[in-house]
Amino acid sequence: MPPSLALRMNHALPVEHRERLLRVGHEVSFRPGARMFDEGGHANRFWIIRDGTAALDMHVPGRRPPVIETLGVGDLVGWSWLYEPYVWQLGAEALRQLRAHEFDAVAVRLMCLKDPEFGRTVEHWVGRVLAHRLNAARARLVDLYGIYETKEPR
């Protein structure tokens, strides 16, 4: 399966697991500018975007929070809920009107504990999302669009 699609929950999880997950989720919406979570907060929820855009940001005193990355339709918002100490590493807010499936992280973690096979597929899915974001962040670190310094004196 293409990595890009493997990041999507509905592709990453087998039908049975997907339906179990969706049973503990419910639909929510956020107005533009609404905060979804803040850095340092308890990571007890996560979302899958159905429509709209969310922006991940970082708290910098005296500055409007710089946006790290934006997430759109189908994207997973939040992964800190799966790993100890379950604390948000970044903040997030709705950039445009946002509709999403919201999940109770504690419930999902319990389901993972009870059914190791379910837990494995969830962890595999979130792991791939993380790998993808790491690669994208690395690509941006390289500053592809910048001009490289000439290697040799010319």
Binding site: I147, Y148, E149, T150, K151, E152
Partner: peptide, 14 residues
């Protein structure tokens, strides 16, 4: 020649 494959930034074949 190094300059033969020069592309803004450096040679492709270094």
């Amino acid at each position: 020649d190094l300059d033969f494959s020069y592309l803004h930034g450096g040679p492709v074949r270094s």
